[in-house]
Simulated scan of single mutants.
Amino acid sequence: MAAVGLQSDIRARRLLAEGFVGSVISATVYSARHLGAGTQVPAWAAYTLDQSNGAGIVEIVGGHTLDAVEYLIGDFTDLSARLAIRHPHAVIEEACGAIDVTTPNHLLLDAVTAAGVVVSAHIHDSKVTNGRTRIEISGTAGDLAIVSGANGPGGISLSELHLLGSRGAGTWQPLQGEDPLTEMIFGTEVGNVARLYAVLAQDIRTDAATVPTFDDGVHMHRLLDAIRHSADTATRVPTY
């Protein structure tokens, strides 16, 4: 489960279990960071453009975002993926020098869960204008969506997240539950980490198992390996 946006994720998962959307049919995922639109990046982010560092769009935004999706609708059983470098060169803003980009800046994914839920995702680092994230889950009775708010261009791990719902022919309505940190003064990024620690503390007190474990991390790395393998071989692959 994603270590970010826990309140939205947990609330969404509970609503799905209660049948808010009916039977889940599909999930559509879009996440675009505004990382210099892929052509100009701040010096602190230059390391993410080197594939050997393992900190690119697949590992960071892809891992966080797809982790949240699997937490909500179940693990993927097989997938087809494409990785692309649409900006092969980037300028480091402070240094005014160009470097080669070796890590993909676009991830396209077609996946399915054991329950037959179909998933499509486009995750990229190249948004010039309104970078944002939206995870939309459609069912036989309605829809749920987790959408980014403040700091949306930073991706799911650095954004304020909001939960929206729609039933039948209705319009989207906010479905945010209680947030134990609402009265505390945190920025968006620090608040996301603080929420993780708050839930961890609750798990320790109640002997629950809500926060991610080492096994969850291993599972996600295997999923990312499957994505890379599918892209390298241009084939559909199992995720286990």
Rank of each mutant, 00 (worst) to 15 (best):
Y47L: 03
T48Y: 00
A145S: 12
T206D: 14
A226C: 08
R13F: 00
T48H: 04
Y240F: 09
D67I: 00
D232M: 07
S31F: 01
A12C: 13
V69F: 01
V29Y: 02
A194D: 03
V69S: 02
S120I: 08
R11Q: 07
G168M: 11
G54T: 10
F20V: 02
E178S: 11
I60F: 04
S230V: 07
T65H: 03
I227D: 02
V193A: 12
Q202Y: 05
T28K: 14
H219L: 07
L144M: 05
S52E: 11
G187I: 12
G63P: 02
G165W: 08
T129N: 11
T113F: 04
F214T: 13
P238S: 13
E94N: 01
S159D: 06
R195Y: 00
V118Y: 01
L163I: 10
D207G: 02
A201F: 07
G168A: 09
E136Y: 00
P180E: 03
T102P: 03
D78Y: 11
P180F: 07
H162K: 13
V69M: 05
G165T: 10
V41E: 01
A32R: 14
S138F: 01
G54V: 10
G131C: 04
D225Q: 14
F214W: 11
R205H: 08
T210C: 02
A121V: 08
T206W: 01
I185L: 11
G63N: 07
S31Q: 14
R205D: 09
T113H: 10
